[in-house]
Design a protein around this nucleic acid. Structure first.
Length: 492
RNA sequence: CGGGGUGUAGCGUAGCCCGGUAUCGCGCCACAUUUGGGAUGUGGAGGUCGUAGGUUCGAAUCCUGCCACCCCGACCA
């Protein structure tokens, strides 16, 4: 294995795969399309979970857990949704194995143990959840019902990539029921805003909030809202979705409530989710040719100390100083790692912690102890600076905030530089090939035009941004009138 | 799921065309010297050649099935 990572500029895809593996985030498993999330990667996911979970709780949601298996008849109840996922469902047909009489030491599926009704492994949980809600909701007093679950789901993808698209992935799915359409829409938008807040303030990833076109909408939803981020290679990545389900699932599962006037009505629903795909977004948004660059707010280790020493006595002295600093930092809620391994040399450690994206590295050697200083290096800019040990915990705390802000600003600047308005189809194609990113163009609002553009350029409408101003124009392909620009991009 | 490619020690690989029991580098273990940006030397350990069959006196090598991974398409968070 060569020491250096592949370069982003030479092979972005290879760089991504290698980085995910070498930084210890995840690896491929012996199961097609399924990955093993390794401890360091899972630690980041756990931080994401904690932050998001708090946000869900603050907005009034409770966690629950629903089954992995969904009877086929239940799954197919909401037709559009079922059709949308049909092609990628794993299905359980048997419940027992037996020793194979023709093949010693091997097992085979017991042909006698066929299930009367096949079980679909959830690709999403609307069906099982709405069939349950039917029993939970009778009156307007039971509403709103605000539930979230953290779970794994399975979508039998043909082509998979670590974190970005795997056959099994982890996510959260919120499922809410409301008395009115207005309230459900408000919930949908509220959760979109929660996701955007998370993306920008924790992932340090600026996102465009918008609505999907009917083509890109979640099967079974009336409206799909999304946040879209731009990766360093100019491709867009959908980082979260929030759906207004209307009464589709309520009707399919007969979920009604009695309103204040004593009349029966179907409830209004929403669902919203983010997945381990966010890990891919995190990697692709900020990292460089030396490795991960983690935003301090999600880094499992925020500060790493590396001692520089020759003799045991030196190490002992340094350890004493580091120990005190570590306590002060931890008192501030900062996570610290002291890498006092004597089996690796400092240069090796520097490279390793850079690969793992630790935001701040502090090197302390005998010279520093004499001078009362430490060498502080920040991962995002690679700047190194000698700083006073006195009060270093405050300096580092500020530095972490600076880094969080800086990588957000860097990503924002990148997005601004790679978001362009075009008015002709020629320009559109040229921009996609020469300087890929978000392309703002007029669209006539028809699925046909959208489809044609997708076929010809591989670019899709990522969303109709919520904050796009009205602007009269004409569709770049058909010349038909358009009242606003939409976001196009090639996407993950 | 269609087309192409790959699978040899923990990782990366040579060998395969043309069959004779596996090469090199990194890593690992021990010791010594080292330690402010991925150390050096010496010695050592480690392999069902993805897997199951077949052909053959003999298979990493030839043939077939299966599994996994990568690239390109179709599909998708």
């Amino acid at each position: 294995m060569s020491k250096a990572l592949p370069k982003r500029s030479e092979d972005y895809s290879l760089w991504y795969n290698e980085l995910v593996k070498r930084a210890g985030l995840a690896e491929n498993s012996g199961v097609r399309g399924c990955m093993v999330i390794k401890p360091y990667g899972f630690a980041i996911w756990e931080k994401m979970q904690r932050v998001l979970d708090d946000m869900f709780k603050k907005t009034g949601h409770s966690n629950a857990y629903f089954p992995l298996f969904i009877p086929k008849s239940m799954f197919e109840a909401e037709e559009k949704n079922a059709e949308g996922f049909a092609k990628e469902c794993a299905v359980v047909t048997h419940y027992r194995l037996q020793t194979d009489p023709e093949n010693a030491g091997k097992l085979r599926v017991d042909p006698e143990a066929k299930l009367e009704e096949e079980l679909v492994v959830r690709p999403t949980s609307e069906a099982i959840i709405w069939s349950t809600y039917k029993g939970w909701i009778q009156s307007y007093r039971d509403l709103p019902l605000l539930i979230n679950q953290w779970a794994n789901v399975v979508r039998w993808e043909m082509r998979t990539r670590l974190f970005l698209r795997t056959a099994e992935f982890l996510w959260q799915e919120g499922h809410t029921a409301h008395a009115t359409a207005e309230e459900a829409v408000a919930e949908t938008v509220q959760m979109l805003n929660v996701y955007a807040d998370f993306a920008e303030n924790f992932l340090a990833l600026p996102v465009v909030k918008g609505v999907k076109t009917p083509n890109e909408r979640f099967a079974g939803a009336l409206d799909t809202y999304c946040i879209e981020g731009l990766m360093q290679d100019g491709k867009a990545l959908q980082a979260g979705t929030s759906h207004f389900l209307g009464q589709n699932f309520a009707q399919a599962f007969d979920v009604k409530f009695t309103n204040k006037e004593g009349k029966q009505e179907y409830v209004w629903g929403t669902s919203w989710g983010v997945s381990t795909r966010l890990m891919g977004a995190l990697v692709m948004a900020h990292s460089d040719d030396e490795g991960l660059v983690l935003p301090p707010k999600l880094a499992p280790i925020q500060v790493v100390f590396v001692p520089i020493f020759r003799k045991d006595e030196e190490l002992a002295q340094i350890s004493e100083t580091v120990g005190k600093l570590k306590e002060k930092l931890e008192a501030k809620g900062i996570s610290v790692k002291y890498d006092d391994r004597d089996t690796e040399r400092p240069g090796f450690k520097f490279a390793e912690w850079e690969l793992k994206g630790v935001p701040v590295r502090v090197a302390i050697g005998p010279r520093d102890l004499e001078n009362g200083t430490a060498e502080v290096a920040r991962r995002d800019t690679k700047e190194k600076q000698s700083m006073q040990l006195e009060g270093l915990e405050n300096t580092i705390e500020n530095l972490l905030n600076d880094i969080q802000e800086n990588i957000y600003n860097k990503a924002l600047q990148f997005r601004q530089e790679n978001t362009v308005k075009v008015d002709s189809y020629e320009d559109f194609k040229r921009v996609l090939d020469e300087k890929p990113g978000f392309v703002l163009a007029h669209w006539d609002g028809t699925p046909e035009t959208e489809e044609r553009i997708k076929e010809e350029t591989k670019a899709t409408i990522r969303c109709i941004a919520l904050d796009t101003p009205e602007e009269n124009g004409v569709d770049m392909v058909t010349g038909k009138p358009s009242s606003r620009r939409v976001y196009f991009a090639r996407a993950y």
